[in-house]
């Protein structure tokens, strides 16, 4: 690991003041589960590391669930520094947003969840093994080509949309939060701004881009989730029960009134460079009663536009399964698969 100067600001403003306006020279340190790995592999070689661990601002460090009264439109606030374990175990969040807490409970292993934070989960770098290999100069490190597009790509994107870098976005919390209509509050040199989470991510193609749209001197403060009484669920298809990223994930949310699903949102994870909104699948479910057949049709529709690479056509089937099961879970159906 290249050595660096370590900073320990006590407020978000002080942290922002330490950040450069270009990527690479300064890194933010929260849980460290991603940054330290990147530094050990010399993928990240910052001169300055700005620790967010000692900032005590409750907006940044706490989960706030307001009183939920009929006729009001409350918003849940989860600070960016909240540990993933604390999201997974939060009783009120479990009740309101099982899509989020189930996804959180499956992140990494117990130690990772005790260390990793919500903000870090949203801002983590991608897991492409070419990107993570110090000796490979891929597009994101200033090279001329993506080695995964025709190389070892079994864990890469199937919705590439002609994108030259075929990573999948690594966050499993992001699809759940997008389905729930969440937004992100960030702070930078000119103050705070709020970004809808479905506009927060971008597909990077060069070294001066990250997997999100933040400026290099901005920090995620918190995530805001409207309480809209939506049924919601997340389903991950995995190789292993723990310590792995899913192969495919579907997060769904919808309002159930009179047995019909409306305001349907279906978001796929681990199949595209950013969380992928399955608009065709949403259309299939909108206004309908969710049955096993309808959930299967939605799964089929979710694969519209899929263009698998040489090794990952299997993910097309996994998307169908994940969407079907997430819809059935959210509708309250008894699972007929092993969990």
């Amino acid at each position: 690991m290249k050595n660096f100067t370590y900073y320990r600001p006590l407020s978000l403003e002080a942290a922002v003041a330490l950040l450069d306006n270009r990527w690479g020279t300064t890194e933010l340190l929260a849980g460290g589960t991603d940054l330290l790995d990147l530094q050990k592999e010399y993928i990240a070689q910052p001169d300055k590391v700005v620790s967010l661990t000692f900032i005590q601002d409750p907006v940044f460090t706490r989960i706030e669930v307001p009183q939920i009264l009929p006729g009001t439109k409350p918003t849940v606030s989860i600070g960016a520094a909240v540990k993933i374990a604390d999201i997974a175990e939060h009783a009120e969040l479990k009740n309101l947003f099982p899509a989020l807490t189930d996804a959180a409970a499956q992140v990494g292993g117990p130690q990772i969840r005790n260390m990793g934070t919500l903000g870090g989960n949203l801002c983590q770098r991608n897991r492409c093994w070419y990107f993570r290999d110090e000796h490979v100069l891929c597009l994101l490190k200033g090279g001329r080509r993506c080695f995964a597009s025709d190389g070892e790509n079994r864990y890469h994107a199937i919705f590439t949309k002609g994108h030259p870098c075929v990573i999948v976005h690594p966050s499993t919390l992001a699809p759940a939060l997008i389905a729930l209509g969440a937004s992100v509050e960030v702070v930078g040199p000119s103050g705070k701004r709020t970004i809808e989470l479905n506009k927060f991510f971008q597909a990077p193609t060069k070294p001066d881009q990250r997997e999100h749209v933040l400026a290099p001197n901005e920090i995620v403060v918190r995530v805001l989730i409207p309480v809209e009484g939506l049924r919601n669920a997340s389903y991950e298809v995995r190789h292993k029960q723990s310590y792995d990223w899913p192969l495919a994930q579907a997060a769904v949310a919808f309002r159930l009134s009179g047995g019909k699903a409306t305001n349907v949102r279906i978001v796929l994870g681990h199949v595209a460079p950013i969380p992928h909104v399955a608009t065709e699948a949403q259309k299939v479910v909108e206004g309908q009663t969710i049955t096993r057949e309808l959930a299967e049709q939605a799964g089929e529709a979710a694969t519209v536009g899929a263009a698998p690479l040489s090794q990952n056509a299997y993910k097309v089937h996994l998307v169908k399964v994940a969407v079907k099961r997430a819809l059935l879970l959210a509708s309250g159906a008894q699972p007929d698969w092993a969990i």
């Binding site: 100067t5 900073y7 006590l10 407020s11 403003e13 002080a14 003041a17």
Partner: peptide
Amino acid sequence: EARTQASKVQAPKTVGFGP
């Protein structure tokens, strides 16, 4: 008390440690 102070300070200078 320290928290309140911290939030009032506009971009205070933070000392670095190391390398």
